[in-house]
Amino acid sequence: MPIINHKQFIHAPVDVCFDLARNVDIHTETTAGTNEKAVGGVTEGLLEKGDTVTWEATHFGIRQRLTAKIIHMEKPTVFVDSMVKGAFRSFTHTHRFKEEEGGTIMTDTFEYKSPYGPLGILADKLFLEKYMTDFIVSRAKELKRIAEDGK
């Protein structure tokens, strides 16, 4: 099971970073490259523990839907979402926020299992793990930009 870890320092308070990361509207903005939008469950505003959201996006040229549920939340330091339905066999995405001098360290830990057994493992090695890493890093950089611009 691949595990992707990414840390991003953001020159903004921890509560601002936490709220931006769980904001459905901001998520849509930070994933514009895949035309991601919320089409079910909570479709705007801040996600809370127990909420579900269904995302529709284009990955690898294929329009896909994925439903995730917020399974854990400790404001403003951590929240965890887990796939309920979608293209992966499973995934858990932990978002951590730690106040540091001058800002916040945001840490994403994304653990997933690909479908299709050995073929999925091969896809991980050939392209999927890099694709998911790039996706998470890109979103973190966009969150940093938005937080630091004071949006």
Rank of each mutant, 00 (worst) to 15 (best):
E44V: 03
E100Y: 10
D81N: 13
F97S: 07
A21E: 15
E74W: 06
F110K: 04
D81V: 10
G120P: 01
F97V: 09
E142S: 02
T34D: 03
P115C: 00
S90L: 10
R96I: 08
M1F: 03
R145D: 02
G61A: 11
A32Y: 08
S82K: 10
A68G: 00
S114P: 04
E36A: 07
E56Y: 06
T54F: 06
Q8E: 13
R139V: 10
V137R: 06
I4T: 12
L122Q: 09
A140E: 07
E142Q: 04
T31V: 05
G102I: 11
I3L: 09
I26L: 14
V16C: 08
T94C: 06
M132E: 03
K37I: 06
W55T: 01
L119C: 03
T31M: 08
G45D: 07
H72V: 03
H93C: 01
N5E: 15
G40Q: 03
I70Y: 15
L122S: 08
A140G: 07
G40D: 02
W55G: 01
E148H: 12
T43N: 06
A87V: 05
K7V: 01
A87S: 06
E44W: 07
E111T: 13
T52H: 09
T58H: 03
A32Q: 11
F135D: 00
L20I: 14
H95E: 05
A32P: 00
E56H: 10
N23I: 10
S114W: 05
T104D: 03
Q64L: 14
K85P: 00
F9N: 09
D25H: 13
D81A: 11
S82R: 12
M106V: 12
F91T: 00
S90Q: 08
N23Y: 12
V42N: 02
T34Y: 04
T58A: 03
G41T: 08
I146T: 12
E36K: 04
D81P: 06
F18R: 07
K75T: 14
K7H: 10
T28E: 14
I146G: 12
D149A: 15
F127K: 00
T77K: 14
R89H: 10
F135G: 01
M132L: 12
I136S: 00
I146M: 09
G86M: 10
E56I: 04
H11T: 14
V42M: 04
I70Q: 15
E101F: 10
G102C: 12
